[in-house]
C-alpha cells in the first residue's frame, strides 16, 4: 500500500491532487487513490479502452442504462449519464465510441453512493454512447445512440 502510494505521488497531477487532498485532510495517509488511467484515456477504440480499464468484454445488461437525449442540438454539450439497479456498483464510466478517445470519464463510487451519475460531454458526431458498470467485481454494459446535429467543434 505504502509503496503504491509513493509511486502515485511521483507522477504528475495525481500527485498534485493527492497532496491537496492529504493537506486538506480529505484522505488519510496510506489511502491512495488510483492514478489517472492514462492508458484508458489514450485508447482510441472501444476494445482498447475496455482493456485498459480491466473490463475485458463486458456482458450487456438490461439493468444498466445510458441516460441522454435521442438527438443533441449541439455536440459541444451532450447530457449523458449512467444509472444501474445492479448491486454493489463500485465504478461507472461513460464511453463515446466515435470520439477520438472513447473514454469520457470514470467514477468510483464508495459504498452508499448510488449508481446514478450525470454529466455533459462533447461529441464530434453521431455515436453510440456506452455506460460501463462494475458490479460485484464484474463488468456490465449498455449503449444508446445519440444523434448530433452539429458537431462539438462547430460554431
Amino acid at each position: 500500500m505504502n509503496n503504491q502510494r509513493r509511486n502515485v505521488l511521483k507522477t504528475g497531477s495525481g500527485a498534485a491532487l493527492l497532496s491537496v487532498l492529504a493537506s486538506a485532510g480529505i484522505i488519510a495517509p496510506g489511502m491512495a487513490l488510483a492514478e489517472w488511467n492514462k492508458a484508458a484515456f489514450d485508447a482510441k477504440s472501444m476494445a482498447d479502452t475496455l482493456k485498459a480499464l480491466g473490463a475485458g468484454a463486458p456482458a450487456d445488461s438490461k439493468d444498466v442504462q445510458v441516460t441522454g437525449p435521442d438527438i443533441a442540438e449541439n455536440g459541444a454539450v451532450v447530457p449523458v449519464g449512467v444509472t444501474s439497479t445492479l448491486p454493489n456498483v463500485t465504478m461507472v464510466a461513460i464511453l463515446i465510441e466515435k470520439n477520438p478517445s472513447a473514454l469520457a470519464a470514470s467514477f468510483n463510487l464508495p459504498a452508499g453512493t448510488e449508481a446514478n451519475v450525470q454529466t455533459r460531454v462533447k461529441m464530434g458526431q453521431t455515436s453510440n454512447v456506452y455506460a460501463l458498470v462494475k458490479s460485484d467485481g464484474k463488468f456490465f454494459m449498455a449503449n444508446k445512440e445519440i444523434k448530433v446535429t452539429l458537431g462539438g467543434c462547430g460554431g
Binding site: 487513490l33 469520457a104 470519464a105 467514477f107 468510483n108 464508495p110 455533459r120
Partner: peptide
C-alpha cells in the same frame, strides 16, 4: 469521500456533474 472521478478532455467546457 462520496465520489472520485477520472476525467478526460471530452467532458464539456464548464463541466456539470450530478450524483446521489
Amino acid at each position: 469521500i462520496v465520489l472520485t472521478s477520472e476525467i478526460g478532455s471530452s467532458v464539456s467546457k464548464n463541466p456539470y456533474l450530478a450524483f446521489k
